[in-house]
Design a protein around this nucleic acid. Structure first.
Ligand SMILES: [Zn+2]
Ligand SMILES: [Zn+2]
Ligand SMILES: [Zn+2]
Ligand SMILES: [Zn+2]
Lengths: 173, 173
DNA sequence: CGCAAAATGATATATTGTATCAATCAGTGT
DNA sequence: ACACTGATTGATACAATATATCATTTTGCG
């Protein structure tokens, strides 16, 4: 993930501040509900926050191993599973990576816009997309779940920098 | 894929007929354009057609190996890559599997509705979802590519059969 | 035919994700 | 503080998914 996209800047802007508060809230909520807030789980959450973007399980493992040699892939996956169940982390299927949820306060059918040039991810809660998807589901007899919808494309900065050839699939020419 | 979802019936209805014609058209188109239509590529396409649903690369490899012991995972992945570039096959990121495109005649930003109980996949070209996604992309500076959007949920038959507990994520209770 | 480009076969390896089970830890009641 | 109980971890092995490399074969073409 981060290795293959060296362009992403790990800014610590107001978004990170908001996430930090959210994180503390999440951790607290966790404790008071019988779920256990452990060293490893906390470490995974904080590593994702520090990164400010998506990381693969093994990238997380590498980072955690620096501070605590006992980290294992299995442990990282277990922690990720825990946080996904809690709604605090999303899995990006298209890049096999994981990212902090930006609105963990409330359940939400969201969208994840992913730039396949720089790896940037933006999370939204667009009513239009959600409604259209639900209508489509109804029409076809599907009850959609609330996993965020992944939309891939090219972000503005990447287009400006000339990366991003033709968006979309090449026609079979 | 098929192993984990024994409920899917491999119907050979009118859809399969349509796909067969499409397949022949695709194969012919391929030949006349300098792209080579080879034994292995044809075998992959026909295996997907015979299945009538999604298969993982290794499931394809197993099927191909029966008829031709020389099939390798690498070869299967190469053939899949070829057909995806040609727009004839879609990759389902959420299940790491591959499926024939149901409308390969024309390029399309489509949707793939995936039942996570039975593995059924329905491909659509819903204007509403496409438009909403594009509007969202514009608003955020993203030019979306044309990979189909994956929507997961539970299909009607599966809901009727009592499978499909609560759709969506459990709130962090 | 004889060449060059495309594709394959064979093999090795990288990446991503789970299973198992004994040891440890966190919360609970005494 | 102490022991009890179930959740969690550490350690290890392994399964599943995907790509890299390169010599050989096939294909299209002059
Ligand atoms: Zn979210
Ligand atoms: Zn970008
Ligand atoms: Zn399609
Ligand atoms: Zn179903």
């Amino acid at each position: 993930m981060s290795g293959s996209h060296p362009m992403r800047k790990p800014t610590q802007g107001p978004k990170a501040q908001t996430q930090l508060r959210t994180l503390e809230r999440l951790e607290a909520a966790c404790r008071t509900r019988g779920r256990r807030l452990t060293r490893q789980r906390r470490a995974v959450l904080r590593a994702l926050l520090a990164e400010g973007g998506a990381l693969t399980a093994y990238e997380l493992h590498e980072r955690l191993r620096v501070a605590d040699g006992r980290s294992t892939p299995a442990g990282v996956y277990r922690a990720l599973e825990f946080w996904m169940t809690a709604g605090a982390v999303h899995r990006l299927e298209s890049t096999r990576s994981f990212i902090l949820c930006e609105h963990p306060e409330s359940p939400h059918p969201g969208q994840l816009l992913i730039c396949h040039e720089c790896g940037q991810v933006v999370e939204t809660e667009d009513k239009g997309v959600a409604a259209a998807a639900n209508r489509l589901g109804e029409r076809l007899g599907f009850v959609l779940d609330r996993h965020p919808v992944e939309l891939t494309g090219v972000c503005r900065p990447c287009r400006a920098q000339g990366r991003a050839a033709e968006p979309g699939r090449r026609p079979a020419t």
